[in-house]
């Protein structure tokens, strides 16, 4: 059974369209983790036909993904897909990822914007921010990935059981590769298309991630 997890915080404008797109492509188990949104995200998601899990207060994207993973595992998921609720990803990439994970007998597949030419990554981000972030992330996680903090991933049940996300905010994007490395999980990257209509994390967001990782290390 396949579960698609969409962590969502104040996404009432876009979430309905993303869910309908997923249904149109034949996916049925769509779980929206409404992370304490103050808008109509939960109503829009339910109206579009998704299963909605609601955090009473906002806990962050990492926390929402872990809630989604636990729900999917409790309900017999064999494969779990992490997908953005804001329409950033292309639904057609999901089936490619599933085929890759089964054909190559992998535990987890990470999406990457840099393995084909479809994503129009902004110039400054592509040539200045991302190379540095990638170097730093690869050093922190111990995993050599061509992209950094890409929210598209597909994992098998066994991998989801081992990847327990404790980073509630955005640092989970570094924590997951770290756990993949620590648990010797078989991984690969998949070219995915990312649509740009907002800036995403700024430089201050990057510092916050580093800080969260450092505190987690001390707190162990």
């Amino acid at each position: 059974m396949l579960y698609i997890i969409l962590p969502a915080y104040n996404e009432e404008q876009k979430i309905g369209r993303v869910i309908r797109d997923l249904f149109q492509h034949g996916y049925t188990n769509i779980v929206v983790v409404n992370d304490g949104s103050s808008d109509l995200t939960a109503i829009e998601a339910a109206a579009a036909g998704a299963m909605v899990l609601s955090h009473k207060v906002n806990r962050g994207q990492g926390a929402a993904l872990q809630t989604g993973n636990e729900y999917a595992l409790l309900n017999g998921a064999e494969i779990i897909v992490h997908f953005d609720a804001d329409g950033q990803f292309n639904v057609v990439d999901i089936i490619k990822g599933i085929n890759k994970i089964t054909d190559e007998n992998l535990d987890i597949v990470f999406g990457s914007r840099f393995l084909d030419e479809r994503s129009k990554v902004p110039f400054f981000k592509k040539y200045f921010i991302l190379p540095f972030s990638r170097m730093l992330n690869n050093w922190i996680t111990g995993l050599k990935l061509t992209d950094v903090h890409n929210g598209f991933r597909i994992m098998r049940k066994e991998a989801a059981e081992k990847i327990k996300i404790t980073q509630d905010q955005m640092a989970h994007n570094s924590e997951i590769p770290r756990l993949v490395k620590d648990n010797n999980l078989k991984y690969a990257e998949l070219p995915v298309e990312v649509f740009y209509f907002e800036n995403g994390q700024g430089i201050s967001g990057g510092f916050k991630i580093l800080w969260d990782l450092l505190i987690a290390k001390i707190n162990k």
Partner: peptide, 19 residues
């Protein structure tokens, strides 16, 4: 450090409640 710990406990509670 203590706040971080409390933060994690809150997340755990929120998740339990949601599920």
């Amino acid at each position: 450090i203590h706040l971080e710990k409390i933060d994690r406990q809150i997340t755990k509670l929120v998740r339990q409640d949601t599920l």
